[in-house]
Design a protein around this nucleic acid. Structure first.
Length: 445
RNA sequence: GGCCCCAUCGUCUAACGGUUUAGGACGUCGGGUUUUCAUCCCGAAAACUUCUGGGUUCGAAUCCCAGUGGGGUCACCA
């Protein structure tokens, strides 16, 4: 019997962000998939910083990026910075000129944002045989370039008559993405390029560059765009929360964000939904990629987050709450008593204050919420507390309706109809404070 | 506008030509547990039969074509 398993080269993927700000939620997903693709097959996952546009670089962005990636458990095996590899790109560009696949251009750079801008397909400098300036790709006429996308699992092709003479090396000596990324993917022996859908239209440029540079072209796959639930368009910084750090600040857990995002654009055959990073890597299947753009709905994110919050031990949850979700100078002993009561009531860490805020400060009591017998209810409760009698006995002894009695109590103590269990809350709050709050409501006409 | 991608419940998706009266999850609604809310458990509605119209086939959500609709992209940014 012949076991014919194709001996594949080692899988090597990369995440290649530019250090221009926070980590986009879509980028996190791209990184996750690239990581899983590599790790599922025992391969390497590289982090490559594409900092070839000095103007857009944001100080500190690189460090922030790495910190965030690590929070999600996405660790890399190798690290590269393009700005430290400049000679590689310029010599590659010069080789392309020498081989007749690129040319120098001394036109002044155009700005796409300017009004009346229109891209010319064939650059006027392509036959001038200039000896200096920017270097552009000499796109051949009427040729078909194609590749098989491993996300969409289909062949995609272009006629080069629709491809413009893209700039490869800028006049400042820095490469553009079109050059740098291809040179690097080749030299770093990347086996699979996984990137956003927005790169799909410029893929023919990259195919040409790969072919002219020589060597084995990596597999290429384009991930779907994540669409805004409201607009149905790509998530935008202006309207939507798009940065991972924003979600962290809102009180979403890394496990939940990761789990949510992995199912936007990928699904297993058995429709399983709960995955840790490790489980995802184990179950990862390249056939699970989706073709259609998903929408970012918060419902499921919230559900995942609630789920993962409940998975935490009280101690772990306290540590998480310490990251900016607690009132100033929170008493830790008090907190450890409160946390078990709110754990299954919150969907986000930031919900803590709305459920447990009354433990730390007196809340305004809206009298219209109280029942018509509230004074009687509260007076008996005060009496019981003062004499140390169990509150549970009060309704029966006085002929109160149990629900009404405790509801008035709840509102007077916490200022809300929705609270943690009121008996336990009173115990935590203390007899004195509780009595004081009840009396205040009784006397405040 | 040119080029490219896409199209199953409100949302994320399963179904890879026939076990489909299209399955699951979130959300919604109803019920149970509970002194509230939440958790948890049970159940229901939900895709004018898989955007529309053609074709291929004994048979199509699944393959092909067209239309329509949605998205992306057209820089010396990535």
């Amino acid at each position: 019997m012949i076991k014919s398993k194709l001996k594949m080269d080692k899988i090597r993927t990369r995440f290649a962000p530019s250090p221009t700000g926070f980590l986009h939620i879509g980028s996190l997903r791209t990184a996750l998939y690239a990581y899983a693709l590599a790790k599922h097959n025992g391969g390497d996952f590289l982090l490559r910083i594409e900092d070839t546009d000095q103007k857009r670089e944001v100080p500190g962005a690189l460090e922030a990026l790495q910190t965030t990636l690590k929070k999600f458990g996405l660790t890399w095996d190798e690290f590269y910075t393009q700005s430290e590899r400049l000679p590689l790109y310029s010599s590659a560009a010069k080789k392309l000129v020498k081989d007749g696949h690129a040319f120098y251009c001394d036109c002044k750079p155009k700005n796409a944002k300017l009004e009346g801008f229109s891209q010319e397909l064939r650059d006027p400098c392509r036959n001038k045989s200039l000896k200096s300036g920017a270097i552009k790709l000499k796109v051949p006429d009427d040729k078909v370039v194609s590749y098989c996308d491993f996300v969409h699992k289909k062949e995609i092709s272009w006629n080069t008559d629709t491809v413009y003479d893209a700039t490869l090396l800028k006049s400042d000596g820095f490469p553009t993405y079109h050059l740098a990324a291809m040179v690097d993917d080749l030299s770093m022996k990347i086996s699979h390029i996984l990137r956003g859908h927005d790169w799909l239209p410029s893929t023919p440029i990259h195919l040409l560059v790969f072919d002219y540079l020589g060597g084995k072209r990596p597999e290429i796959g384009h991930l779907t765009d994540i669409l805004s639930a409201e607009t149905g368009k790509k998530l935008s910084k202006r309207r939507d929360s798009v940065f991972v750090e924003q979600f962290l600040d809102m009180g979403y857990l890394p496990e939940a964000i990761l789990n949510f995002v992995m199912l936007l654009g990928w699904a297993p055959k058995d429709n399983r939904e709960l995955f840790s990073l490790g489980e995802f890597v184990k179950n990862f299947d390249i056939n699970g990629f989706q073709d259609a753009n998903p929408r970012f709905f918060y419902n499921k994110l919230n559900w995942f987050n609630g789920h993962y919050i409940r998975q935490k031990t009280d101690k772990e949850l306290i540590e998480l709450l310490k990251n900016g979700f607690l009132p100033e100078n929170t008493d830790m002993e008090l907190l450890s008593k409160i946390v078990p009561l709110v754990k299954e009531r919150i969907a986000k860490l930031s919900d803590f204050s709305s459920f447990a805020g009354f433990f730390f400060e007196k809340k305004e009591v809206d009298k219209t919420l109280l029942g018509k017998n509230y004074k009687e209810h509260l007076s008996k409760a005060v009496e019981a507390l003062e004499r140390g009698i169990l509150l549970d006995k009060i309704p029966e002894e006085n002929g109160f309706k149990v629900g009404d009695f405790f509801m008035d109590l709840r509102i007077a103590i916490a200022g809300s109809k929705f609270t943690p269990p009121i008996n336990e809350s009173i115990e935590i709050l203390g007899k004195e404070e509780s009595i004081e709050r009840l009396k205040k409501v009784i006397s405040n006409n």
